[in-house]
Computed example of a mutant assay.
Amino acid sequence: MDFALTDEQRMLEETLTRLVADRVSPEQRRARLQAPSPGASSLWQTFAELGLLHMPFSEEAGGLGGDGTDLMIILQALGRGLVPEPYLFGLVLPGTLLALTGDDAQRARWLAPLLEGEHQLALGWQEIAARYDAQAITTQARQKEGQWHLSGRKDLVVNLGAAAATLVTAKLESGKLGLFVVPAGTHGARSFTYQTMDEQPAGDLTLEDVLLAQEHCLSEDVESALDEALAIGRAALCAQAIGAMESACDQTLAYLKERKQFGVPLATFQALQHRMVDMHLHLEQSRSMAILAATSLTLANDERDYRVAAAKAYCGESARFIAEQAIQLHGAMGMTDECHVAAYARHLIMFDHYLGDSDYHLEHVSDRLSAA
């Protein structure tokens, strides 16, 4: 197969590479994380001006009709620079669900401003007891006197603090899975925010008999749309991890060439050369799996989910391997905040846990192979 990029895709890649290099240096990233802006950052506004916020969505939803390869290019570039903007969790995941389930009025209220960069959203679908199983949740939604009543808790909601609203999944009395828009500040919705190990803003959302009008219900049967959105998110995460793995390998190799031991660069030691080769082998094999995931998003649901699960499982294991090797080859300084490779290592380790870890996806792959 020909995996060469089109002229437009090459231009997109070059533009993003320059943008990230100019606007997200290690120092700029640290400053952004230490003093986050209350609203959308100037970089997020630049994303909107360049059309990056419209890119992953269909033209019918108000987007530019980008495909899985376009999304992969964007997330790889963001991963290389560890860009702190919530492109995946604040835009792609909730935006995809809005595009798939919302009616015209709901899209105009929540999706159109999202694509213009006027606000960000979040998706609350995980619960501690359910782990990565979207169906095994305890959050309940029931109708009473023309309103929806939501009660439960959502954990690890990335971008919760900056979101104008959170899309929340809940079990209906029919047993099906519903999807609701819970605006920030809604009475009965309490949030506890924190940072994940890789410095992502996240939080837990507790719903205590939250009352919502009918128009806040996006779907009373969201299972298929949620599976599609999560498949897109997992493929995007794989691409983001490839970018981070590339940078971790490049920084480690540069350090081995610069650092001397016994009067010669560390890169001259054969044992360390072998370890660098192993890192690059994991990177290139993961790149192939990320391409597989990105190009499988339009397949039938079962085949799509099988391929994406295989890619996420493999990339998760590779990400952890490269993170550990990068730290070890840097020595003790690799654990310090001053060494930028430590931030990449934390991100690569956490990557495995976002949207399902390697064990979860390997089980999915195993079940598929056993059934075959």
Rank of each mutant, 00 (worst) to 15 (best):
H274K: 15
L111W: 00
V158T: 15
I74N: 03
T298D: 15
L88K: 11
H119C: 09
A112R: 11
E49G: 09
L5V: 05
A326F: 00
T169E: 07
M11N: 10
E145A: 12
H187R: 14
A61S: 14
L97D: 06
D302C: 00
A184F: 01
L156H: 12
E284P: 02
I291E: 11
M197R: 13
I327Q: 13
A241V: 10
Q251E: 11
R109A: 14
A244R: 09
F180G: 01
T69L: 10
L281K: 15
F351E: 02
Y354D: 08
L292W: 10
S151C: 05
H54M: 14
A311C: 06
L237Y: 10
L167A: 03
N301P: 13
W110T: 00
M55I: 12
C238F: 04
G79Y: 06
V83Y: 00
D305H: 09
L253G: 05
G117N: 05
R275G: 04
P84F: 06
G263P: 00
T206D: 10
H54S: 14
R18Y: 07
H119V: 04
V83D: 03
G243T: 07
L33Q: 06
M245L: 15
H364K: 15
L292M: 15
L226T: 02
W125A: 14
G152K: 02
D209R: 15
V341A: 07
E145Y: 04
D104K: 15
A141E: 08
M245Y: 05
G334K: 03
S358C: 09
R190W: 06
D70P: 07
A235D: 04
T17L: 12
D133I: 04
A271K: 14
A294L: 11
G331W: 05
G334T: 08
Q195S: 13
A313M: 04
L19A: 11
T96C: 08
Y87Q: 05
E363N: 12
R18F: 07
R29S: 09
G188C: 08
T69S: 09
M11L: 11
P86R: 05
H361P: 07
D221F: 07
L100W: 02
A345D: 08
W44R: 13
P113L: 02
P265T: 00
A48K: 06
A254H: 09
I322Y: 04
D104F: 09
L114H: 00
P38E: 04
G65N: 05
G152M: 05
L292K: 11
G102E: 01
E59I: 13
L230R: 13
A235Q: 06
A129Y: 09
V277G: 07
G233E: 11
P265S: 12
K154L: 09
A4L: 08
E118L: 13
L226Y: 04
L160V: 02
G146H: 04
D67N: 15
W148L: 00
R259D: 02
S174P: 02
H361V: 05
I128D: 12
K257G: 12
D67I: 05
L212R: 03
E145R: 12
D209S: 13
L172F: 01
G331Y: 08
P26M: 06
T96M: 07
L53G: 08
F57A: 03
R307D: 06
S58N: 09
F3E: 09
P38A: 03
K260L: 03
L100I: 03
M279D: 05
G161C: 00
D250V: 15
L75S: 08
Q126A: 11
A21K: 10
N301V: 14
P265I: 02
Q328N: 06
E118M: 07
I73D: 03
